[in-house]
């Protein structure tokens, strides 16, 4: 094992990384969601960073795990709020931006905005861990 090139990933490790992709999304997304219910929105940066740090050995796609986790965190909550509101607000707010006037699109944009910062936060946390991690 010691003589293996650093960039080489064994098939076993690759399968394990794939298996842990969805759980990692749930851990980062869920953890950040809980934090945001009690703390300001930027708590997601810290929680995604920390959770990606701890889950680094399990999976190698921190950006997409963080992105998807926070995309869902923001997107699903926005979707629920929008349903309960009959899209009254979203149909107006969407007109503030140069995008087609669709509530669904505004929900997607919301998810993407959450996803991007979530993705980079998770990627940072993951990369921080990997400075010391032996692979």
């Amino acid at each position: 094992m010691n003589n293996i090139n650093a960039s080489y990933i064994s098939p076993v490790a690759r399968r394990r990384a794939k298996r842990w992709f969805i759980p990692r999304i749930i851990i980062i997304g869920g953890g950040a969601t809980i934090a945001q219910f009690y703390l300001p929105w930027w708590s997601l940066i810290i929680s995604a960073f920390i959770l990606a740090f701890f889950t680094a050995p399990l999976n190698r796609s921190p950006f997409w795990a963080g992105f998807t986790g926070l995309f869902l965190s923001w997107g699903v909550l926005a979707f629920i709020i929008d349903i309960e509101n009959n899209s009254i607000l979203s149909s107006r707010v969407v007109k503030l931006f140069p995008i087609p006037e669709s509530s669904i699109l505004l929900i997607l944009v919301t998810g993407i905005i959450g996803g991007i910062i979530g993705g980079f936060s998770a990627a940072s946390g993951d990369a921080f861990r990997r400075i010391w991690m032996r692979e």
Binding site: P40, W74, L77, V93, T110, I117
Partner: peptide
């Protein structure tokens, strides 16, 4: 971020 966050941003004004 603050504005779009459904936890505290504009979505909170959806009654």
């Amino acid at each position: 971020g603050k504005f779009f966050s459904p936890f505290e941003g504009f979505w909170q004004q959806a009654e």
